[in-house]
Write a protein that binds this DNA or RNA. Sequence first.
RNA 1: GGAGACGUCGCAUAGUUCGGCCUAGUGCACCACCCUGCUAAGGUGGAGAGGGGUUUAAACUCCUCCGAGGGUUCAAAUCCCUCCGUCUCCGCCA
Length: 423
Amino acid sequence: MIDPQLLRDSPDLVRRSQDARGDSVSLVDQAIEADARRRSTIGAFEALRAEQNAFGKTVASAPKDEKQALVAKAQELAARVKAAQQVAADADGEFTKLVGAIANPIIDGVPSGGEDNFVTLREVGQKREFDFEPRDHADLGELLGAIDIARGVKVSGSRFYFLKGVGARLEIALMNMALDRALAENFVPLITPTLVRPEIMAGTGFLGEHADEIYYLPADDLYLTGTSEVALAGFHSDEIIDLAAAGGSLRYAGWSTCYRREAGSAGRDNRGILRVHQFNKLEMFSYVLPEDAEAEHLRLVSYQEAMLQACGLAYRVIDVAAGDLGSSAARKYDIEAWVPTQGTYRELTSTSNCTTYQARRLDIRYRTESGKTAPVATLNGTLATTRWIVAILETHQNADGSVTVPQALRPYLGGLERFEPIA
RNA sequence: GGAGACGUCGCAUAGUUCGGCCUAGUGCACCACCCUGCUAAGGUGGAGAGGGGUUUAAACUCCUCCGAGGGUUCAAAUCCCUCCGUCUCCGCCA
């Protein structure tokens, strides 16, 4: 949810953001109007209520013989209060609905437009060239006994797989390397719930545009999370957190399995494990002071880049365009790694600065120096996922089908230097 | 899954019997000052959250919040319903 004060003070800023995202601009004016109506109806109700409260005392202390008449008058007053309360509640509901539909105002510099209007900030690393015909990760996975798609499909259906042998070990190694790096930056590790209540799912904004992406268990009214961001954001919901005592920020590294229905992407990336229903992820999540959010965002990107570099991957960092941002994000950087057999970059990480938008909805606050409460800023970013295996296998493959393990990962694989094809 | 107990403004509690004197009391912790002086004790005062009005701001003022949401009533922490959660015991199962 955006700051209602911003709507009153700087409506143009909100209008510009809506326009850049390709969202409704008139929604802003509807919300402003609803805000005015809300406040006037609340005022009317509260005045009546004050009258009722005062009159109630008169009734309570009145002598018995006068009570009858007073109660009759109180009944009439109560009816008016009830009506005014309903009007105020309706106006408040309408305002909440409209203001809730407005996405987080983008940060200056975010490119306008849709999916294709991103700006490439930098390209890093050498794209791998081959003097042989490179295999794609699905072939390599089979050759190495690392990925078993067929059996995944047999057991669970399309877009499921088994990681096996060095494949399973590689994923655990990636997660452990990511965790070690997160620990070095003072992230607190968390293994998070992957089933969450509706209000937490809604609070993180995933029930809106992503609703059909999410697995839902009707028997228990619980949602399976597509990222630990949901639980990490919910972790401090309804809390006033002490950022000062924590050194200005609270950082968590959440590990979890992630579940995605991939509705609407039928036919896309069907081969291999690029787009799957279930994978694992180590996610960084930061709670910071609003004024520190942009600096924290750049730090998260730098940790991601360091991870990709350690894995010997070529990549580009892109500034995602406004129309391709989630409603909670004010800016998002994606890092895409070069996938040789596809001849293109594919997203391996994403990091969003949600400013105070997500925190306002989840009611996560801190205390300012003057002692008042104010919403914190939240940020999230990927540090490792199962998908990285795709780029790592393809990038470091050799002509005989073996794969050279990047130096940085070897300590996490018992010193293993190469994955060799199984017989 | 069954039975029972419970949920009060940081923590701990009073209040629920029998609706109005609750504008939710008290203790601890906290903050400021005072006294005293040696790591403590005492004294005075302050202090919850959200939302209106007003204001440069402060101050002031009103409304709401007793797990959540409904209901009854002129009036609900208190009565009724639903849900959520915690604890104890029993059952079942990794």
